[in-house]
Simulated scan of single mutants.
Amino acid sequence: MTLAVRPGVSGGHYLEDHVVGQVVCSDPITFSRETVARYADAVGDSSSLHDPNIPGSTVHGPLIQAMAISWMVNTGVAARVLAELDHTWHYTKPVRIGESVTFRVTFTRIQRSRSRAKGLVHRTIDVLGADGDVLQHATSRILVEARTAVDDTQERARTAIGTAEWARLLAGALERDDQFTRLTSTWDGTIGFGIGTETMLLRVYKGRVLDVGRRMPHGPTFVVHASERTWVELVTGPENDFTRRAMCGQVQTTGDAYEYLRLNRTVVAVIDVMRALAREEEK
């Protein structure tokens, strides 16, 4: 779902104002020759790679990051950030001087701290060219101030993909799902879901989910890996397009390839249940 800054949110986004799957986009931002020249002068960069007087020169990576963070702060999306914990930026394509870009932020996880007065927000940041092509992208974790110190873990669990609370809800929903129990009625094994840097395992035996957790005694039969954002889009998007994403390289698998292919319909059915859980949270 693509949203502007949420109506009624004044003074910036508190932890409670973030929603898993929410997307916030900037207006087009142009990196003019003057802007790049001032930045180069400020940091003492005389490299021809970033010389605004040379056609085809590129914008400094740190300048793009700074502009993205400045936009997020000015619009309130990051006004309540207490700390940047992780920030990984990938420069897949250059941004040329004079080019206009759009920043797109997707929230992929919200997790309240033990103190309840703050919490972690996982997000991805894309730098889009004029044609919508992704020029650069980043992942980050930020610590965000909460409006009130309450425990809303259970209320948010249905979209807290990859957490223990979410996995327990998923296991219960799978055992009530006729398609899942039918597809796994004769199967004995462990299905893993790699969500970003974390993995959650489901121990399945003849249509039942016996256990969930990060580890199992004999390990997973196979693991389906994707980024946090891919999982969020799969679970909160308009349709279950797992097969398309797998064919496009957004999903990878490890472990027993034969069993994964044999249980491909089961994986799709599990994602259908994930999507149903997320829809329950929206009600």
Rank of each mutant, 00 (worst) to 15 (best):
T102R: 15
R147Y: 04
A40F: 01
S140T: 09
A37W: 09
G11C: 09
R80V: 00
E99I: 01
G213P: 02
G132V: 11
D17C: 09
R104T: 04
N74V: 05
R6G: 00
K206R: 14
V209C: 04
R141L: 08
L210R: 07
D86R: 06
Q22G: 15
L183E: 10
L201T: 04
L120F: 10
T190N: 11
A117G: 00
Q136N: 15
L169P: 11
E165P: 02
T30R: 15
R116Y: 08
I110L: 09
V127T: 15
R279G: 11
S185K: 14
R279L: 14
S100Q: 00
R215D: 07
G132H: 07
P7W: 02
D177K: 10
A40G: 08
F242R: 00
T199A: 12
G194F: 01
R168Y: 08
A278H: 10
R208F: 03
L234M: 09
G196A: 09
L85Y: 04
V150P: 03
L85D: 14
R176M: 14
S140Q: 03
S57V: 05
Y205R: 14
T2E: 09
D151W: 12
G196N: 04
V127C: 15
T58E: 10
R279T: 08
L277C: 07
Q252G: 02
G189S: 08
S100R: 05
R109K: 15
D27G: 13
G21K: 05
V95S: 05
E233A: 07
Y258I: 15
